[in-house]
Design a protein around this nucleic acid. Structure first.
Lengths: 104, 104
DNA sequence: TCATCATATCGATAATTGTCTATATGATGA
DNA sequence: TCATCATATAGACAATTATCGATATGATGA
C-alpha cells in the first residue's frame, strides 16, 4: 500500500457524512435504505458516497436481491491503523533540530 | 472530538503531498526548508499545506528565528487512531443482516 | 536602520467535490 | 412480460481545493 492509496482512504473519510456512515457500519452490516434514513441526503448522493467508500477499499458492498448491503473491510482499516501507528511510534523522545543553520 | 473534527483530520491527510509530509515528520521535527527540498511544490504551496496540517491539530509549528519547525502532535494522532480502533473493534463476528425485507 | 532571508498571505485560476434532479439499470414477483 | 422497487449513472452547478506568481510580514545581522 502506497501513499496514494493511504491518501485515497483518508480523503474518503475526510467528509463528515462519510465518516458518520463508516462509524455506523462499525455496528455491522447495513443496507442502503437504513443509511438513507439516517442522513439528510438524497438517494443518488448516498450512492455517490458509498462508491467513494468502496473504491478506496474501506467498505465492501454485496447485492442481496434488490438491496445493497455494506460492511467495513477490516483488512483495509487495519492497514490504515497500522500506517498511523507506525507514524506515532516513529516520533523520537527528544526534539531533533534540523541543520538549517549549518546548511544556510 | 466530534465527527467534524475527525473529518477535518482525515481531509488533511487526504492529499498525497500532505500524507507524505506527515510521514516525514514521524522521524522527528523538521523545518520548512527541509520539507521544501523533498517536494516539488513552491514555498507558498508548502505553507498552505502546513497550515492545513496545523489547523486540524495533527501538526504543531514553532518559530525558531527565521525558520519554522514542525512536529507531529501525538495527542491528536492518538485520538484519531483511537477512533479508528473503536470502529475496528465494533465489527461483530457474524454478519448482521438488516430488516429491509420485513420493513419493506 | 536597512538589506536579506524564510515564511505567510493575496489574488487568480483550473481542477475537483458534493449535491441535486432526471433518467437508466437491474432484480423481483404477479 | 411488465410494473415496481432499490440502486446507479448522467448532467448540471455551486462550493471548495491545490496550485501558482506576486507581494507582505517578520526576524536577523551588518
Amino acid at each position: 500500500m502506497d501513499y496514494k492509496a493511504y491518501a485515497m482512504i483518508m480523503k474518503a473519510l475526510g467528509d463528515e457524512t462519510r465518516v458518520k456512515i463508516f462509524d455506523m457500519l462499525s455496528e455491522g452490516e447495513r443496507c442502503a435504505c437504513k443509511l438513507l434514513d439516517e442522513f439528510s441526503v438524497t438517494q443518488p448522493t448516498l450512492s455517490y458516497h458509498m462508491k467513494i467508500l468502496c473504491d478506496c477499499g474501506l467498505v465492501s458492498a454485496r447485492r442481496d436481491g434488490i438491496w445493497m448491503r455494506y460492511t467495513v473491510r477490516q483488512e483495509t482499516l487495519a492497514e490504515m491503523i497500522g500506517f498511523l501507528n507506525r507514524i506515532a511510534e516513529g516520533i523520537p523522545e527528544g526534539i531533533e533540530v534540523c541543520d538549517c543553520k549549518e546548511a544556510g
